[in-house]
Design a protein around this nucleic acid. Structure first.
Lengths: 223, 223
DNA sequence: GGAATAGTGTCTTTCAGACAATATGTT
DNA sequence: AACATATTGTCTGAAAGACACTATTCC
């Protein structure tokens, strides 16, 4: 049976300027020249799929230590107009403060786009973004996946804001903090931070840096 | 970039004789001759991935209308000793009464194996089975995926038994029935069935034949 | 009547969800 | 003192989880 070209494409997400944003690159080659697309590329002959995703990630962002999760494999014969290409899509979550790419460089060839104001995307990349949003929203409720988008130290307001941005709805401050402290996943660093002219906020850090499946601990977290 | 051979492998599950069973075929060719493996094969040049999975399913079971869901894509370079092969794994759920393959044909080259007593499997198929069990168990709690394993008409005891077999623990009869009737997903057909020498059981059918994401309806179903 | 299986109801505890007042800092 | 932001507690309703008895049929 003839082999098929295999690519990886990554939906790289971050929270920047109060919105969930995805990294896109402008296509320089045919097909879809000039359209925006997810960063991706061909898998090398001896390269594990995940390594290919990490490599593409490093090439497009300069970062290589991020949360990475396989999303889905897209293999419709017509998804690439040049001929059949199978693409393994990944989702990456990147804390904004660890990313060298600055926001809103409108003329750049690589930039963040707010997920609710996307341009037309090449290939089936629109479907990939859509699926990744669903995945992240769902996992936000029963894992600590959201923590991957936070800096090491943060205030409760910042953390809640990230959850609100991803879920696209507002949350009750009191219920949010109650659940979070009930989970015991964060602890105060002892510092405080002055955000404006109000009362300074306590600064927190995560106890477990690692990804945690709350459901496997019998915990459900409907924020 | 050189293309790669792409296969699909299916973890086909059913509940038979009170256990969760997976369909395996004995390998006739190198590598791993004589070992058991998941049914699978190469994707054809113009064939969508899911169609390839359906085709392999039909070839191994004779059935082609089943619940089918993409599981994960395995692409470690060493997973096939002949050279690199990327495999897209699928999970299929098959109602036992719709399957022509009979249980316990010990000498056969294609047979059901209880998932808790598996032989050594070829390639990384053991990992595929493991991952599919996790997936199915998780989805059992917030979707109607379990219904795919039931015949059209069934008793409550049968339905509960399927849940117990998959989750590998016993459930409370009263709580199970309460939740199920609360969901409104089943209705009595009006018939009764004599299972042995006790009181006859009511026969039920599903209202929605289709797969339902209960979470999208705001429902959580921790059986 | 005894055995086998089906079917049903209550109580307790936990937690999600809605809701408002107080505390601590800046200007 | 006015303002801004942070922090904390209560009540209610829903449902998960534990638990035991009654109903119907066959022998």
């Amino acid at each position: 049976m003839p082999p098929l070209p295999v690519t990886v494409d990554s939906v790289i997400l971050t929270v920047l300027e109060g919105t969930l944003q995805v990294l896109l690159v402008r296509r320089m080659d045919s097909p879809f020249v000039g359209l925006w697309a997810l960063p991706g590329g061909f898998v090398r002959p001896e390269e594990p799929l995940e390594n290919a995703a990490i490599r593409e990630l490093r090439e497009s962002t300069g970062v290589d230590e991020v949360y990475l999760e396989q999303l889905y494999t897209f293999g419709q014969p017509q998804r690439d107009t040049r001929g059949r290409v199978v693409s393994v899509a990944y989702v990456a979550l990147l804390a904004a403060d660890r990313c060298p790419i600055k926001p809103q460089r409108l003329e750049a060839e690589v930039r963040w786009w707010p997920v609710y104001e996307l341009p037309e995307l090449a290939f089936d990349h629109g479907a990939m973004v859509e699926m990744s949003l669903q995945r992240v929203r769902t996992k936000l409720e029963y894992t600590t996946i959201g923590f991957q988008l936070m800096p090491e130290a943060f205030t409760m307001a910042q953390l809640q804001s990230v959850y609100e941005v991803i879920l696209d709805r507002s949350l009750d401050k009191r219920n949010f903090q109650r659940k979070l402290s009930l989970l015991g996943l964060v602890e105060p660093t002892g510092d405080v931070r002055k955000e404006g002219r109000g009362r300074p906020a306590q600064v927190f850090r995560f106890r477990d840096v690692d990804f945690v499946h709350l459901r496997e601990r019998g915990i459900h977290v409907p924020f």
